[in-house]
Design a protein around this nucleic acid. Structure first.
Length: 218
DNA sequence: GACCAGGCACATC
DNA sequence: GATGTGCATGGT
């Protein structure tokens, strides 16, 4: 038995997919690159994160062992373009310490942990909050965990489907209860929301170009 | 030059 | 428990 909100959430997925097509996220060649990107993109434009990732790759630091052993100053210099470079270096190091102390630096072992427990463990790492944890689980681990972000709040509150200040977990549960348990859909839906947010539904929205039903701004 | 970007931790009340 | 603040670079 699906609520009206669930049906809207399903309809909006169809609309966005038809409008934008598949987004093929996450941009990144390896699981480890996805994890690093998830931390670096916190409150930061992906454009800037790309430069940081390229720097890390060029310096040979984009593997668990290399990043774990890298000097703090070297990491800072690579990720400077992504902003918050001091805090983000700490956050990367916190994750590496967790990965090596608990899983010997082995991502296969990390992602063999059941999703719920994995999420709790990631949230215990200083610097990994709910969105970053869910991004890592979904896009690096390929496991079911819907990602909520600022765009999701903005777009779906304007649609009258959620309260703008609803807790993260409530929004996440609404999406997960509304959608089939399908990695491809979780993957594409969040990516499509970001696409809509970046292109159209910004703080200054271009509502004339929005494929969604009329919202509270129109 | 102001404003924004695919958050999070921590201080303070 | 709610609210405020620091963190930093680069594009519009």
């Amino acid at each position: 038995m699906k609520s009206a909100k669930s049906l809207q959430i399903q309809d909006i997925y169809e609309t966005l997919y038809d409008h934008f097509g598949p987004q093929n996220w996450w941009p990144g060649d390896t699981r480890f690159e996805v994890i690093v990107g998830a931390i670096l993109t916190q409150n930061t434009a992906w454009q800037n994160v790309k430069k940081a990732i390229e720097n890390l790759k060029r310096e040979g630091l984009l593997t668990p062992g290399a990043l774990h052993n890298a000097a703090v100053e070297d990491v800072q210099e690579c990720i400077r373009p992504a902003g918050y470079f001091r805090v983000k270096t700490k956050r990367l190091k916190h994750f590496m310490n967790f990965l090596f102390e608990k899983y010997s630096g082995d991502l296969d072992r990390l992602f063999s942990v059941p999703t719920q427990l994995l999420r709790e463990e990631l949230l215990n790492v200083n610097g990994i909050g709910e969105e970053t944890a869910d991004s890592i689980i979904l896009y690096a681990g390929g496991k079911l965990s819907f990602v909520i972000d600022a765009y999701t709040r903005r777009i779906f509150s304007r649609q009258g489907i959620i309260e703008p200040d609803a807790p993260y977990g409530r929004i996440k549960k609404l999406f997960e209860d509304s959608l089939p348990e399908d990695i491809g859909i979780y993957n594409e839906y969040h990516a499509l929301i970001v696409r809509l947010g970046k292109d159209i539904c910004k703080t200054k929205p271009l509502c004339s170009k929005c494929p969604l039903p009329p919202c509270s701004l129109e």
